[in-house]
């Protein structure tokens, strides 16, 4: 993916008069950029699937954040006499084998799963953007070495490494968040690098270089704001990817540890008893799949909105 929309905006505008200083030119870029965001937003609004996904996803987030305080049960509170019961008026999603309310457990599991999505994505974002921007900006030998390294990592069995990390350093939730983030930054680095490579050649960056601004300032102030579009798309698509990895680890018993529960843990518990108590599998699996569905559609919609050229396909 490249910056078609951005260059298209540039091309249609008359060239700025040469008397402007570099920072003024850069400001003009940002002003033009805002119309890009407006365009993207109006395109996104036309994509019903993406809008529906966004709404459902936000509903899920609100439910998971607020829900556990509203539902009159505690996710840890066991009722061994009750045991597993089917969905009913008191327990909308039923209860699990230890008599815990499944609705509250599903919502609390959602909290953890969504938190993984957020934290790990932020980690991957930080690593990927810095790595990619540096490689793209410096170019030449440094760039080709750095990207060769990314290629190499792409081809490696990363899930196995996360598992090894979990084995080696105990099953701490926060460690897992970071470990997952550390393996999901490769696409981000590639996208940022491609964007930076394309933008670097444009006039406003050359202007900033000729004014003697430091590399750091050019990267932070000029380049990063301009590759934001593709980064948002990849970040949106990274969230479901990291949630998937977390759920995978938790499913195997290597991730979140009981009594804490993420959706992966709940799905694992559910599948162990699915013959007798199928709802224990159905509810967490449904919410997990729905969330992934929404995020993937939203990511695709954002990609189409921010890159009109690919939208035609």
């Amino acid at each position: 993916m490249t910056d078609h929309s951005e260059t298209a905006v540039l091309a249609s505008e008359p060239a700025p008069p040469p008397a402007h200083s570099a920072s003024e030119i850069a400001e003009e870029e940002l002003v033009q950029g805002s119309s890009l965001w407006k365009d993207a937003w109006s395109r996104l609004k036309k994509n019903k699937l993406a809008v529906a996904s966004l709404v459902i996803f936000l509903l899920i987030v609100v439910a998971c954040v607020v829900g556990p305080w509203i539902v009159p049960y505690d996710g840890q509170e066991q009722d061994l006499f009750l045991g597993a019961t089917a969905p009913s008026a008191e327990h909308w999603f039923g209860t699990d084998t230890l008599g815990r309310d499944l609705l509250v457990r599903t919502l609390e599991g959602g909290r953890i799963s969504l938190m993984v999505g957020l934290v790990a994505t932020v980690v991957s974002l930080a690593i990927g953007v810095i790595y990619g921007a540096t490689a793209g900006y410096l170019g030449g030998k440094v760039d080709s070495t750095m990207m060769r390294f990314v290629d190499l990592l792409y081809a490696l069995p990363f899930t196995i490494f996360v598992i090894l990390l979990m084995v080696a350093f105990g099953r701490s939730m926060w460690l897992m968040f970071v470990a997952i983030g550390c393996v999901e930054w490769l696409s981000m680095a590639r996208i940022v690098r491609a964007g930076v490579m394309g933008l670097k050649k444009q006039e406003f960056v050359e202007a900033a270089v000729s004014l003697g601004y430091s590399h750091q300032r050019i990267i932070l102030r000029h380049l990063i704001p301009n590759v934001l579009g593709p980064v948002i798309v990849i970040a949106t698509l990274t969230v479901p990817a990291v949630m998937l990895l977390e759920a995978f680890l938790s499913f195997l018993g290597l991730g979140v540890q009981p009594p804490n529960a993420s959706w992966g843990v709940l799905i694992n518990e559910g599948q162990q008893n699915m013959e007798i108590f199928p709802w224990l599998l159905m509810f967490p699996a449904f919410f997990f799949a729905l969330t992934l569905f929404c995020l993937n559609f939203l990511g695709d919609g954002l990609r189409d909105a921010l890159d009109p050229k690919s939208a035609k396909d």
Binding site: P240, L244, A247, F248, F251, G264, I267, N268, G270, Q271, M274, E275, P278, L281, A285, F288, A289, L292, F293, N296, F297
Partner: peptide, 22 residues
Amino acid sequence: AMAGICLPTFVMGPLLALVFGL
């Protein structure tokens, strides 16, 4: 295909087992 990508193996597996096996 989109649905398939959103149904990871550990969801798909139990579901298939539930439907075809049970």
